[in-house]
């Protein structure tokens, strides 16, 4: 297994408050890793470090090592816009732009400077197909993305990220704003995508983690408690605390 992202001793402060207390996590290529843990334990905070979205939060300071393909994510040579083209992100609330489906998915391509109409058409179609939403939008590519259902919007947002062809896709509770059927569709989409992409997903739905992830990291109050193969984690966790959490004793 090749490691694609490596992090070591990650500490993060919101002002004076320490939200992550030294977390070390490595992520394998073409695997789906789930981050679980109770609300407020720092899952989103950690995820946002990986594409430097925390840089947008005023008063944040970050310590530790972050490497993508052995290159320092936080070095001055790494431009955050280049990094984010390699490490895409899908948010909890579906957040398509108020433009057409086509313009949404083509957005990243235009950022990359791709101008050829045929090439853009092709990538838009491919991305929507990979995100398993093509059949539902193909007749309405020029309709406003906001006029689709929440689940469709979320898959359009996934397609929008896929179009940029990132190596890693971060997802922050991508299904928690969706109904069960839409959630299911998004889960199936992710399962297919992990053949091509490395996926890191925050979820507070343990069953979702069990269903679709290869590895699971359990966090609690800014600490990493256990990081293991998902099967192992759910059947016989190493830590008592993990077992308690998975059995619903707290959280």
């Amino acid at each position: 297994m090749t490691k694609i992202i490596e992090t070591k001793d990650v500490r993060l402060f919101y002002g004076k408050k320490e939200a992550l207390h030294g977390i070390s996590l490595d992520f394998n290529k073409n695997e789906l890793t789930a981050l679980i843990g109770p609300s407020g334990c720092g899952k989103s905070t950690f995820l946002r470090c990986l594409n430097r979205m925390n840089d947008l939060v005023p008063g944040v300071s970050i310590q530790g090592d972050f490497k993508l393909h052995d290159k320092d994510i936080y070095s001055s040579k790494m431009k955050s816009d280049d990094l984010r083209k390699q490490v895409g992100m899908v948010f909890q609330q579906p957040n398509p732009f108020p433009f057409s489906v086509y313009d949404n998915v083509a957005y990243g391509l235009k950022l990359k400077g791709i101008k050829d109409k045929k090439e853009i058409d092709q990538i838009v179609e491919d991305s929507l197909k990979k995100a398993a939403v093509w059949d539902e939008v193909k007749d309405n590519l020029h309709k406003n993305a906001l006029s689709f259902s929440g689940g469709q919007q979320q898959r359009i947002c996934i397609a929008r990220v896929l179009a940029v062809k990132p190596d890693v896709i971060l997802l922050d509770e991508p299904t928690s704003a969706l109904d069960p059927i839409s959630s299911n569709q998004v889960e199936n989409t992710l399962l297919k995508l992990k053949k091509e992409f490395t996926i890191i997903m925050v979820t507070h739905n343990m069953h979702q983690a069990a269903r679709i992830s290869d590895k699971t990291a359990f966090m609690l109050d800014g600490d990493l408690i256990e990081y293991n193969k998902t099967k192992k984690m759910f059947l016989s966790p190493d830590q008592q605390m993990t077992s308690d959490y998975l059995n619903g004793k707290f959280g």
């Binding site: 947008l56 950022l111 990220v161």
Partner: peptide
Amino acid sequence: SHYRKASLALGATRWQTIYKV
């Protein structure tokens, strides 16, 4: 503000976000 975040997360610079989104 989630349009800004979405755009930046896709690798847009601040200027691209301002004039394209």
